[in-house]
Design a protein around this nucleic acid. Structure first.
Lengths: 203, 203, 203, 203
DNA sequence: AATGAATGAGAGTTCATTCAT
DNA sequence: AATGAATGAACTCTCATTCAT
């Protein structure tokens, strides 16, 4: 079999497994889910899982990678909105809030929970999501702030405050805050105003 | 034995056990920690743990209660700062950021991680921490915003944005963001300016 | 304290404990009952139980002894009915069937169950109940049978058949046979006829 | 692997486990036997037991089912002895007394002991053994009695007396009565005479 | 490549018994 | 004599992982 076709099959199988794992993790949580659950959901045997992934944790990492691809891929195109700072900012805020909206929250909960406790997953998050995102933010928003006279440190901390706000909102949504659950769609606009005001006045 | 003394001993033992559990949870995480680990750390037998707590999860809940007492007790006195809005806000932001500073971060990580995944713990957090805190914030900051013409819903969402920012910052600290780790102490002031600006401009 | 009074107190305490144990054994069974259950029911501490009994099994033995006293004490007076063989037999059958009627079945179930599996209890049953009872039966009914020409072995086996029938009926009652449960009171007469016929024709 | 072969292997393994469980239960009793004991006896790991049976109690139920199969399968062919009432009755008495003779007594002791105390096992016994047996007895012996003028209730109670006698004899054998142990083989004949006389004279 | 039976370490929890007070 | 906190061995059951087929 040619290597390319071979690789295609392997990827398909990996996808199938991750898909299945994502479904049951989202439903039951990481620890309560057994590899048997995953195999059943995927319609394969337990052994096969281990032909494609080393450990159960590796599945979570794989899921995380795929989540990242989704978030980042869709996120990036929005960015270069050009001269409109409000548009730039709103895109920056809108994307992650909406990306998790559909069925992803349940899974995100599992991933974040484990991330806080699992070094490997945490590293992946930092290197592959947080740091690139912050880099982009520093290069766009941060630079604007510095231009307006804010110190680089203050700019960095401010950016972290905004990015943390996003993470925090998702978590409090997950925690079940009813106001957030009911008015999630209105958040991007409120936040855009909120941040815009904060930044403008910072100068 | 008089009941009072009796109760004192029981409380002391419970404290001893929770203390030990906190240490090993912080070091190894909740799931990887065994009741044997806890017993060893506490210098007692495994059986004794179960004379005071029903399950391993009850230990985490007990730890959470004690954390809450620490955070809330110290938090409240700051509030009634009177006419100084900046002072009010800064107290609101300062307290939680600092309370977790010392050795509590490692433990907080465990608690939050489990909270996202454990209904009982999540409920306790919502009812005993989040809701009271939000209620206080709505009654102080929220009312000010409404006075300035913001709609009640926008005020509520704004308050959630701020409170989420706090939670998010702690989490990103835990995730190991080096900028946050190195400049944590400067956060309260940056945030106070940030939020103050945001709110003023909201009118 | 004079020894007699002393002994009185000890006996009273033992009774209190056995009474309590009987109640909870009857309700929950032997193995599922904990010494804590017994202590609670007796209104004393777990430690006190062990001042009066060596092991949990010793409690069952103690209960058994008291059951025996009840059954045998009431049983014996009936025996010397004199010339009336039917009366003699009926008394022999009536007593044990009725003795267990009230609340004793539940407890008897526990005792028999454990007896089948516990050497010590089994020995006590054999030596203190079965053998004396069989001895009396051999000396009264058995002798009558031999007089009528039955071989001593046949007489012995016949007596065992009758005595086993009693035990078996109690067990099937315990097993929940509805016919037995509903018509238990009519059993002595049916059995008396049954056995009388069997024995008469045996000659 | 073809389903049939697969099923064969599964059955073989189940048999192996039940066999081992029967051996150690018979030797040590149900409660004192650990799953480790069973695994060791079966030459497999503890985990494997749970691939085939849900709980330790399920093992006892499985053993009971196999005992039942043995007893009932061998029991039935004897029944339709036709016109010979003595033959019919003797078959009825002979079968259960002999079936348990060999190595089954020790196991039967465990099963009966637990049956008295375990609802599930008791139900299985009632529905799968006792009720069918009584039904057959009522349809054969009971009907004969009624023909001879005995009331249906008396017939039912008489049948229960006989069936209880069997159960009781097995139990007293188990209890160690030396007369029964030594002369067990002579029982069927003595009992046949005994019952035959009792029934004939009942009219 | 796929299987799934077998593994066995180890988990949380229970509870009869002890013993210092 | 009474206590009940402490014990710790032992329990049943789970499950990620392996490997012969």
């Amino acid at each position: 079999m040619p290597d390319v076709l071979q690789q295609l099959l392997v990827d398909a199988r990996k996808n199938q497994i991750l898909e299945a794992a994502a479904v049951v993790f989202a439903k039951k949580g990481f620890h309560p889910t057994t590899t048997k659950d995953i195999a059943k959901q995927a319609g394969i045997s337990e052994g096969t899982i281990y032909n494609y992934f080393d450990t159960k944790t590796a599945l979570l990492l794989g899921i995380f990678q795929r989540m990242k691809d989704t978030v980042i891929q869709e996120n990036m195109p929005i960015m270069p909105d050009g001269s409109d700072f409000r548009g730039l900012l709103r895109g920056f805020l809108y994307q992650p809030l909406m990306a998790l909206k559909q069925d992803n929250f349940a899974l995100f909960r599992i991933v974040v929970s484990e991330m806080m406790v699992n070094e490997e997953l945490r590293l992946a998050y930092n290197q592959q999501i947080l740091e690139p995102t912050l880099a982009v933010a520093e290069a766009t928003i941060g630079i604007e702030l510095v231009k307006k006279g804010v110190t680089p440190l203050q700019a960095s901390l401010t950016i972290r405050a905004v990015s943390s706000m996003m993470m925090g909102l998702v978590i409090e949504y997950i925690m079940g805050d009813s106001t957030l659950v009911e008015h999630w769609d209105e958040l991007p606009d409120v936040l855009t105003d909120f941040v815009l005001n904060a930044l403008n006045l910072n100068l």
